[in-house]
Amino acid sequence: MTTPTPPPASPRPPERRIAIETPPDMETGVYANFVAIWHDSETFTLDFATITRPPKPTEDPHTGDTYLHTPARVVSRVKIPPSQVFEIMKALEQQLSSWERETGRRDGQA
């Protein structure tokens, strides 16, 4: 009597390892203290900006209301597909949790 041979296991897909290279001129990065996020049907856009001058009280010509005009300049625009938004949110949460454990700080408070 022979024992049936089990079918061969399907090969596991190879693990993906992305090797990120940062060009020398980008290694220092850019400072941004503001981000505007918007989307269209195909893309999410993240405009990272830095405030360029102190806020200045300004009157809205249409309503007469006073608001703080805060000029900012975009230092980097990043466009991502919707499928990446979830991965970025997970990665940010992991990094924020790690930062909070390491520094003992929460919500960016000193």
Rank of each mutant, 00 (worst) to 15 (best):
M1C: 14
H69T: 09
S41Y: 01
E42G: 14
P24D: 07
Q109H: 09
T22V: 13
D65K: 11
P13G: 11
G64V: 05
T28E: 09
T70I: 07
T66Y: 05
Y31D: 07
M26N: 12
F34S: 15
V35Y: 00
S98R: 03
L96R: 08
S10D: 12
S41H: 03
T45L: 04
V74R: 02
Y67W: 07
I88C: 11
I20H: 09
D60Q: 03
T50A: 12
D60W: 00
R16P: 06
S41C: 01
P6M: 11
E93K: 14
A32C: 06
T3P: 01
E15T: 15
P57Y: 01
R77H: 03
A49T: 01
F44C: 06
P81T: 09
D40Q: 08
L96W: 01
Q84F: 04
Q94W: 02
T43L: 05
A72H: 08
L46V: 02
M1E: 14
P14K: 04
A91W: 01
T58K: 04
T28V: 04
R53F: 03
P57W: 00
P81W: 00
R17V: 15
A36F: 04
P71D: 07
T5K: 08
E93M: 08
T66C: 04
R101W: 08
L92D: 07
P4Q: 05
M89T: 15
P82E: 03
S98E: 05
P61W: 00
Q95A: 15
R17F: 10
P23L: 08
P81L: 01
T22C: 13
E93L: 12
D25W: 03
E102W: 00
K79F: 03
Y67M: 03
V75D: 03
F86H: 11
R53S: 14
G108S: 05
M89I: 09
T5I: 13
M26W: 05
S41Q: 03
T70M: 03
R105A: 15
E102A: 14
I80L: 13
A32N: 06
Q95N: 13
D47H: 04
A19N: 13
P82Y: 08
T66N: 07
I51V: 15
P8N: 07
H62I: 08
P61K: 05
D60R: 05
P71S: 07
L46K: 01
P71Q: 09
E27L: 11
